[in-house]
Every structure is written in C-alpha cells, then in structure tokens.
Amino acid sequence: MKNARNNEVADRRSSSAEAKAALLNAYRAAKTAAEPAKIARQAERTVISNAHEERRVERERVKLEEQTRIVTEAAERQAAAEAVIAAETEARERAEKARIARVVDDEALRKAERDRRYANRKARQA
C-alpha cells in the first residue's frame, strides 16, 4: 500500500512534467510554424512604412514647391508694384519739370515783351 500511494504522487509529478514538456514543445512548434507568417507580416509592415515615408516626402516636396511659388509670385508682384511706382514718380517729375520750363519760358517772354515796350516808349520819347 505504501508504494501505491507514492506511485500516485509520482504519477502526478510525471504527468505534470510531461504536460509542461508537451506545452513547451507545442509552443516551440507553433513558434516555428508561425515564423514564415511573422516574416511576411514584418515585410508587409516594412513595405507600408516605406510607402508612408514616400508619401510624406512627396507631400513635403509639394509643400516646398508651393511655398517657393508663392514667394516668387509675391516678389514678382512687389517688383511690378515698384516699377509702377517708379514710372508714376518719373512721369510726375517730368510733368513738374515741363511745367517749370513753361513757367520759365512764359516769364522770359513776359520780360522780353516788357523790355520791347520799354524800348518803344524810350524811342518815342527820344
């Protein structure tokens, strides 16, 4: 009887050890079987990640081109505005110089007319 009781404990221990070994072997087998799927998932993730990175780089490139275009257009508008302002200023200066020249010419004609009248009056008095 004494041996029978020990066998039960021994049986339970050996069953437990066998169950643990079976679980470990099953885990190892599942891990080995899942390895190709794991590699495939990892490759798929890498492809997706690369695609995301390419799209991000493309978005940044488009954004940079847009900013460059906006800056260029702003510079062109600024240059055009400055050219218009310069042309208006030059036209105003030319008009002012022409007006001054007319005033000087008119003044010279008035003085010449006055001098002529003065000379005529002196000639009549003499």
Rank of each mutant, 00 (worst) to 15 (best):
R92H: 07
D105V: 00
V71T: 07
V71S: 13
R77N: 13
V104G: 01
Q78T: 12
T89C: 10
R99H: 15
A80E: 11
E73A: 01
E96R: 15
R102M: 05
T89A: 11
K97D: 06
A83R: 07
I100D: 10
I100G: 00
A75F: 10
A86M: 11
A108V: 00
A98S: 11
E65W: 01
Q67G: 00
V104I: 11
A74M: 15
R77Q: 15
E65N: 09
A87K: 08
E82S: 10
A80S: 11
R99N: 07
T89N: 12
A79N: 07
A75P: 02
A83T: 05
R92C: 02
R94T: 05
I85C: 08
R92I: 07
T89I: 09
A75G: 09
R94D: 00
V84K: 10
T68K: 11
A108P: 00
A79Q: 13
A81E: 13
R69K: 13
R69F: 13
E73N: 15
E96N: 05
R92L: 10
V71R: 05
E82N: 07
T72I: 10
T89G: 07
D106I: 03
E96C: 10
A83Y: 13
E96F: 09
E82Q: 14
T89D: 09
I85T: 15
A75I: 12
E76P: 01
R102P: 00
R102N: 05
E65S: 03
E65H: 01
E65K: 01
A80H: 14
E66D: 11
V104P: 00
E93D: 13
E66Y: 08
A83W: 07
E88C: 10
A79T: 03
I100Y: 02
I70K: 13
R92S: 05
A101R: 05
R94I: 06
E82D: 15
E107I: 06
I85A: 11
A80V: 12
E66L: 15
A91R: 15
I70T: 06
E96G: 04
R102Q: 04
R69V: 06
R94Q: 15
A80T: 05
R92E: 12
A98Y: 02
A101Y: 02
A91Y: 00
A91N: 07
A83F: 09
A91G: 03
A75V: 15
R102G: 00
Q78A: 07
R92F: 01
K97V: 03
E73Q: 12
E82A: 11
T72Q: 14
I85F: 00
E90C: 01
A83H: 08
R77L: 07
A81G: 04
E76K: 06
A98D: 05
R77C: 14
D105L: 03
E66F: 09
V103A: 12
I100N: 01
E90N: 03
A108M: 03
T68R: 13
A101C: 02
A74E: 14
A86S: 12
R94F: 01
E90D: 05
E88V: 13
A74L: 14
R102A: 03
A75M: 11
R92W: 04
V71N: 12
A74K: 05
V104L: 03
A83V: 06
A86C: 10
R99A: 14
A91K: 06
A91D: 09
A95D: 11
D106Y: 04
E96W: 12
I70C: 04
A98C: 00
V103W: 13
E107D: 09
